[in-house]
Amino acid sequence: MPPSMPCPSIRIPVELLTQSTFSQFGTVIENPAHSPLPPSQRGPPPDAVSANQGSALKILDVTHMSNLYSLAPSKKPAKAVMNMFVCAPRELRPHEPSESMPSSWGDLDFDEEDYGNADRELFDVRILERHPFTTQTFIPMGLSGHERHTQYLVIVAPTLPASASRRNIDRPPPYPTPKVKKQNGITEIFARARPSPFTNEAAPPPSQFTRLHPSARPKGPGLPDLKNIRAFVATGNQAVTYGAGTWHAPMAVIGERPIDFVVVQFANGAGIEDCQEIILTPDKNAEEGVVVMVDSDSSGKVEVKAGIGSVKSRL
């Protein structure tokens, strides 16, 4: 059974899924022409070239895939795998007032009377998972970008320092990190000096991870930072890549019908190295745990209540 960690009562608003807001957790894959953001907020255009005898536009490097299994204790090699997840809609519970604290990442207004015409329901986040040595890309199939009755939530959290994590469970979390070899010999000590007496280098050699996108670098052994957990709503025009080691909820479909996702990642078949889970258990004095507030209009379309495109945005 997965380990558990206590969590406070905390309520999370829904944000618009964009590359700028999601960048610390991974990448968003979308055709810029179909972005829900206005052109003035989309950022620089991606690199693209003409393809297929001029009948197509090839957009380059749309996501960042990482295979970090060389850091796994077993050293068992991984291979690229492609699976399909058929994700049924999740059950939401009716809204009720709460003294839960808001997530601390943004400056938000949680006035319980300020709902406009939206209906509010609640989604309880009971478990988070991570894939410590691989990115994981979810590609929805058959979901229109203009779908009004079915969407999906992308729920992610930063990683706490390992020292803070050990205070929350009775053992260190099962996230292996590479062992650092102690260098005590005279030659090794001089080799670490800068400038180097052997090469005249003024700076230490770059880490093997510097070439990776920040979201794809190892996150360390820490538990999820629940005070900074975030929730995004995605359209059918968007796929998402979780960076290696990024804490995230299992895919949460909300609406009327299932969504088929093609999922691309690396795996080596060692369970604890491929996927790690943590159960979120409300504190004994908490009236609820981690909850996403899902506001929708009369047609069932999710309304964004935080961040870019909030309040007035209709996805």
Rank of each mutant, 00 (worst) to 15 (best):
P97M: 02
M65S: 10
I10G: 05
A234H: 05
G243L: 04
P282Q: 09
T210Y: 11
I186C: 01
P89C: 02
P178A: 03
M101K: 15
H146T: 15
N31W: 12
L37Q: 09
V233M: 00
G243P: 12
F123P: 11
P178D: 03
G300W: 10
F190Y: 14
K179W: 06
E121A: 11
Q19K: 08
R130S: 08
V294M: 07
V81H: 08
A216F: 06
G245V: 03
R11C: 08
G222P: 05
R171K: 14
S70A: 13
I12Q: 06
H64K: 15
V240T: 12
N237F: 15
R93Q: 13
L212A: 06
R42D: 08
T137L: 14
L92P: 06
Y69P: 10
L280V: 09
L128T: 01
M141S: 13
E287W: 00
A78G: 07
M82I: 13
R11M: 08
M251P: 02
P205M: 09
E96V: 07
G289W: 00
F190C: 05
P38G: 03
P176T: 10
P132W: 03
V294T: 04
D124M: 11
R126H: 09
G245N: 07
S98A: 09
L315S: 06
E121W: 08
Q24D: 12
T177H: 07
E96C: 01
V156K: 05
L143F: 06
P39R: 04
V156F: 06
S310A: 11
C87R: 09
L60M: 13
I12T: 04
S50V: 10
F190A: 06
A72F: 12
E256V: 15
S104L: 11
K58Q: 12
V263Q: 02
T134D: 01
A162R: 13
E99K: 12
S313P: 04
I29Q: 12
R257G: 05
S20Y: 00
I127H: 05
I229H: 02
L212C: 03
G236C: 06
I10T: 14
S55V: 01
K75T: 02
V62A: 14
K312W: 13
A78N: 11
H95S: 08
Y152W: 15
V302H: 07
E30Y: 01
F198E: 07
K79E: 07
V292W: 10
R257C: 01
F266W: 15
P45I: 00
P38E: 07
M101C: 08
E96G: 04
A231T: 05
P2M: 08
T281F: 00
S23F: 13
N168D: 12
F261W: 01
L143E: 05
P32F: 07
N237Y: 15
Y175V: 14
T137W: 04
P46W: 08
S104G: 11
Q136W: 06
R130T: 06
A234R: 04
A48T: 12
Y69F: 15
R148A: 03
T137P: 01
P94L: 01
R194L: 15
A239F: 07
T135P: 08
F133I: 00
F232C: 04
E30I: 12
K76Y: 11
F209D: 00
S55W: 02
L68M: 00
S9V: 02
Q276V: 12
V302Q: 03
K312N: 07
T137C: 10
V290W: 02
F85Y: 14
L57C: 11
F261N: 01
A48Y: 05
F190W: 14
Y242D: 01
D170F: 10
P158R: 05
N200I: 03
D170I: 00
